[in-house]
Design a protein around this nucleic acid. Structure first.
Lengths: 310, 310
DNA sequence: ACTCCTATGCTCATAATGAGCATAATTAGA
DNA sequence: TCTAATTATGCTCATTATGAGCATAGGAGT
């Protein structure tokens, strides 16, 4: 049971929210996620991520969570040992907007990479994308494969009466990759049966970084529904609409305002500060802050009721 | 960005269910999880896990999912390069009960390692454990730390009117580790303020394998509530009570029979086979099978309604 | 026939969720 | 000043999900 020797690197999906736009920290002109080597001096993986992210961005990382470990031979760069490189990816949330442009680092709207994931404003929609995916599905060799592909498309994009599930970010990206519709696919030598220009398929990234980003977005979208992690992204004081806009930015969909308030208030996540927000052309809003005591408790266990009681 | 070279190994939490007991595959007389080296010939990590698990157990792995990647310097064995070893753990579900005892491999009831996680039959309970944890909490140096510890204990074990959350397997084990109550902690040099004999603290494992097992159990318990993964553990035909017993075995708690049926039937996960089960002293039960079509769809997206609609 | 056991069908209270109406408190402009 | 626009906030209502219990069905054993 002697393990073979491999090269290991840490990749970070670092998220912040500016107003109504979710942002991710990138390097190389937006083509890469920041990554650093796993160094022997780090006591743990998470400590390693914290260390070099905080050195790079000069901002404390509030929340850090392991995402996924990749080691595909084909999609990764060649390492110096035996051709295998392991990428351990992390999701990090940071509260304030750091002064980017440090050493080529920049905060980018994550919907630049996944335009179809932003469904807050139903503009042109993704009908062209779905068309192209249908072409791909029909191009499958076997009838059973055609059905399987069509089902995957229908589930991922909420077709035929299904609801759009905003957590299927990775599944949607993988579909587009397999169908040869994103730039990374053709780069990796996957054939494409459609004209991909003008479909709004987003900016590509190096290696499989866009896949890792998709994983991070999916994880975060799932997390905000049952753990109070949004507060890691908020300033100390905020209005309920600020909070709602942040959640909507992450989830990529609009929420019912009154119901959102009800949810937040009945979970006792926030409390009034007694201060009013700056007037913005409407009735002035109260400023709230998060309740540290409740947050601490909810950080361990979510609010979901588990299985049936005995 | 040159990554340092490390040793990588794959660790599997392989789960099966026999009647009403959840089982995990172990080696070394139940003291270790099966693990294998990451070899360059494996096309991906998951392929690597599948390959050597199927070679070892001679059974196909239905469901495989990455669990977590560990690389703590302190809790792990020394590798041959620079002292760092990376362990990438996977959760696997297998349908039938393999012929164990192959090369020292054996299927063990996972509650042998976590007796406090089985709450199906409220016997003596874990009051002694909670006592010991209270002692540990009160022994904290600072008052704020005492409060923090007490809160963690209360949340993890469902005290003070909180409900027991069966998904907090890892949190509970970590508490016991930090409090020095499990054997691994004293092995790793953590002091203990209580007499741990007779507390029912379960069998220890080598290295941090018990922590990995706890992670796997927690993941599986969470998963069964929103993804139809139980069927990977069931025979082709089963009664609804069989199914319920399996879920109860995993969740560690009893379910309301009628409500469980309602849930399963309204989700259309199963269909009748027309065959009746062997009589067992009561009214004979119908045998069911899983519906392949529905399962395929639910495998991608769960059944949970997401956030509020726009 | 009676008892014991498990299967199965149905009802009911309560909570969570999605959607809408109504009113309050401002600013911008006629 | 009066009015429209805009945002905040409170409340109701229908639908669905959840937890719990009652009742009946269909067998085995005595």
């Amino acid at each position: 049971m002697v393990a073979s020797s491999v090269a290991a690197e840490l990749i970070a999906v670092l998220v912040a929210v500016a107003g109504a736009t979710p942002q991710v920290l990138t390097i190389a002109g937006g083509a890469s996620l920041p990554s650093g080597p796993l160094s022997p001096e780090h006591r743990s993986l998470q400590a390693g991520v914290r260390a070099w992210v905080e050195r790079q961005t000069h901002h404390p990382l509030g929340y850090v969570e392991q995402l996924y470990t990749f080691a595909d031979n084909d999609r990764n760069a060649v390492s110096h040992t035996d051709g295998r490189a392991i990428s351990i990816s992390y999701l990090g949330l940071t509260r304030e907007q750091p002064n980017a442009e440090d050493d080529g680092a920049a905060w980018c709207n994550w919907y630049d990479y996944f335009p179809w994931e932003d469904r807050r404003h139903d503009g042109i929609g993704e009908s062209a994308i779905i068309q192209a995916l249908h072409v791909w599905a029909e191009a499958a060799p076997k009838p059973s494969e055609i059905r399987a592909r069509s089902l995957r498309v229908a589930v991922a994009f909420g077709l035929d009466g299904r609801r759009w599930n905003e957590e299927l970010v990775l599944q949607r990206y993988e579909l587009l990759y397999e169908a040869g519709l994103v730039a990374e696919a053709t780069r990796d030598g996957i054939a494409c049966h459609s004209d991909t220009s003008g479909l709004g398929l987003g900016l590509p990234m190096q290696q499989d970084h866009r896949r890792i980003l998709a994983t991070g977005i999916a994880r975060l979208r799932a997390k905000i529904t049952y753990r109070p992690v949004v507060f890691e992204l908020m300033p100390p004081m905020f209005t309920l609409l600020d909070l709602q806009r942040s959640v909507e930015a992450l989830a990529g969909r609009l929420l019912h305002k009154q119901n959102f308030r009800r949810l937040v208030e009945q979970q006792e996540l926030v409390e009034e500060t007694g201060i009013m927000a700056e007037p913005t052309g409407g009735r002035p809003a109260k400023l709230f802050r998060f309740r540290a005591d409740i947050l601490q408790e909810r950080a361990y266990a979510g609010t979901k009721p588990p299985l049936a009681r005995s």
